[in-house]
Nucleic acid binder design. Sequence first.
DNA 1: ACGGGATGTAAAAGATATTTTACATAATGT
DNA 2: ACATTATGTAAAATATCTTTTACATCCCGT
Lengths: 71, 71
Amino acid sequence: MPTPSPIANHIRRLRFEHGEMTQSELAERIGMTRQTIAAIEAGKYSPSLDAAFRIAQVFGVGLGEVFQWRA
Amino acid sequence: MPTPSPIANHIRRLRFEHGEMTQSELAERIGMTRQTIAAIEAGKYSPSLDAAFRIAQVFGVGLGEVFQWRA
DNA sequence: ACGGGATGTAAAAGATATTTTACATAATGT
DNA sequence: ACATTATGTAAAATATCTTTTACATCCCGT
């Protein structure tokens, strides 16, 4: 299991706020797999900055509105 | 050599705006190596979100003011 | 009760990021 | 001229992220 990250995220909320978007849909739209979305959403590890940017863009918000740093 | 990333950054400018901070100093402050800073600064690959957050915090700005997505 | 869609999770393989070690050059101060 | 500091860069090893494959449960509609 990957190392837990000190980064909180609001992916799940954003998904539901955007038409009940499913993990699979989100994954497909940013070119990643469902498992990766699930892991990031669960905070199992911190994603690449690239992945983070693509996720934020799907929701039309800035990085800071998806991921928050606590440490 | 790592893959070039579609992410632009302003680390170098920010370093100089913050007391001519050196790559080594920045690296030390965020617990990474000088080579990693150099590679990120040169856009050789996109850092982890964790590294990105730590860099932004050193400069006291948000992620978007350090890294910008173009793609 | 059954089937399908959404999610949780895990192990192994693959890809990418980061460290370590090492050497090079340019700029600066003495 | 010499030493020191900052930076560029590279190869190999290590760590971390991501995919692939697979199976599990939960929930909802029929």
